[in-house]
Design a protein around this nucleic acid. Structure first.
Lengths: 121, 121
DNA sequence: ACTTCATATGAACGAATGCTCATATGAAAG
DNA sequence: CTTTCATATGAGCATTCGTTCATATGAAGT
């Protein structure tokens, strides 16, 4: 039972040539990177979170403003903001009792714009 | 009970100025577009699907090759390929008994690359 | 200190997701 | 026409996810 460089068995029905398989294996990032990537995209995969991020495109906002803008409860928004914050997609700034959230960096917008391009074609 | 241009109630605790709210509402795409966008990103939010797409970066592949490359069952891969195909992220080409899948367009790679940039910073 | 108000958080519940197993489809070969 | 093989698909199941509800935290004002 032969094994290729990737360590999986090369069965008789394999249609690809060995060199293609080597290239695929060579280019494929490690398990952990791919999981991180999937986890990143998971945060964009819910329309509530997308709407939150879109709202923050214009300016920083506090939790209750976002909740009212999106017609959702404070709790639901807070839970989602925590997820976005843990993934470093947003950052929080406290001002007295109020906490203002803002986009963490330009990547967030770049990723959403890239997705939007695919939608609108 | 006042209402702003977006149709939601402006409560007493609102921290944002009216002009900011107007801009947020004006820039926010419609419900359907945002749902489509979330649905698109959902397809990138699973590491199996990410690995499939990464594999297809190098060349088109048939279902059983992908299954073996990723050490997963043919059924699992087929189910995921169907989802990717419905979202027009991959396209299928039949050659006898074999079906070869390939990336549908360059957006797929662009979106993944954009996500990867955020991961690796 | 006590109250108020914005936010955070944990438990719980229904909905959605990804895989498996069994089976169906459909194309080529005998 | 029957068999074989690659792929597709539906049902079932365990897990994950997003929201709600109740409650905790923590900062400001009285």
């Amino acid at each position: 039972m032969k094994q290729n460089d990737c360590g999986f068995e090369v069965c008789d029905f394999m249609h690809l040539h060995e060199d293609v398989l080597k290239r695929v294996c060579a280019e494929m990032p490690g398990e952990e990177v791919l999981s991180d990537l999937a986890e990143l995209f998971r945060l964009f995969s819910d329309s509530t979170r997308i709407r939150i991020l879109y709202a923050l495109f214009e300016s920083e906002m506090c939790v209750c403003d976002i909740a009212q803008l999106l017609s959702m409860t404070q709790s639901a928004i807070s839970h989602q903001l925590r997820a976005l914050k843990q993934a470093k997609l947003v950052r929080a700034r406290r001002d007295g009792k109020t906490v203002f959230y803002a986009l963490a960096d330009d990547h967030v917008r770049a990723i959403i714009d890239q997705g939007m391009e695919h939608i609108l074609e």
